[in-house]
């Protein structure tokens, strides 16, 4: 199985001199096609930094980030933006939909930015919205939707255009239990369909949807466990 995402000895330092903070320290990590990897760890452990590096929104201070065989560090701003339009999808905790765009327009955004005709992009968006179960809400604005509906739109936005890497940062954090489970089911289904997923979460029951769980602390990978032991998941330090 080929790795869609590959981090090799990635270090990220914020600031300089005495104020420097090491968010990630020589982290190596892979996510393969069809695999959902959960990343867990306490606040400040570097989970979100790992996701921004994987998404090409930030550059590592050291190490390599490779997505679908392309090293992001070697790309310029525009090329990395193109990667986010075609290969990488983001799902945020706070939904982060653009309030001025309808659900379909939010989903179609990356396709339109990629030069796809508006009509085609929207048709594609509607199809993905159907897949996530809210095809009838395509013309609604985010302010007129519930949290669960907004997060479904966010997932649709992340997967539209057959993107192969889905990065989800606490996607259920703002949702009730039942809706959260539905969202994770969608994410799981997308990975089962061939995408690689990285799920940042605090909750063990959410990590149970993953194939593997990676534990981060103080910017280092401190443990990694398989999906079969998901019921026993606790933080390594607590074990």
């Amino acid at each position: 199985m080929s790795a869609v995402l590959e981090l090799t000895d990635v270090t990220r330092v914020h600031g300089e001199g005495p104020a420097a903070v090491q968010a990630l320290r020589a982290v190596s990590f892979r996510a393969h096609a069809g695999e959902l990897v959960a990343v867990m760890g306490p606040s400040g452990s570097g989970k979100s930094t790992l996701l921004t590096l994987a998404g090409g929104l930030d550059r590592p201070t050291d190490g390599r980030v490779v997505v679908e065989g392309v090293e992001l560090g070697a790309l310029g701003n525009d090329e990395r933006a193109r990667m986010r339009r075609t290969s990488i999808g983001y799902v945020f905790q706070g939904f982060n939909l653009i309030p001025a765009l309808t659900a379909a327009e939010n989903v179609a955004l990356s396709r339109e930015l990629d030069g796809v005709a508006a009509r085609t992009a929207r048709a594609e968006a509607r199809r993905v919205l159907e897949e996530v179960g809210i095809g009838d809400l395509a013309d609604r604005f985010p302010d007129d939707m519930s949290g669960g509906q907004q997060q479904r739109v966010a997932i649709a936005r992340a997967v539209v255009g057959e993107r192969r890497l889905i990065l989800a940062d606490e996607p259920t954090g703002a949702l009730d239990t039942e809706t959260g489970e539905e969202i994770l089911r969608l994410l799981r289904a997308r990975c089962d369909a061939g995408a690689a997923g990285v799920l940042v979460t605090h909750e063990a029951r959410h990590a149970a949807w993953a194939d593997r769980v990676v534990f981060l602390r103080d910017g280092r990978v401190v443990d990694e466990t398989g999906a079969e032991s998901v019921d026993l998941l606790t933080e390594p330090a607590a074990r």
Partner: peptide, 16 residues
């Protein structure tokens, strides 16, 4: 700013 950041996350360039 937040919208622009989201556009960037969805693949928008600085030019966008």
């Amino acid at each position: 700013a937040h919208t622009l950041a989201l556009v960037a996350a969805a693949g928008g360039t600085p030019g966008q």
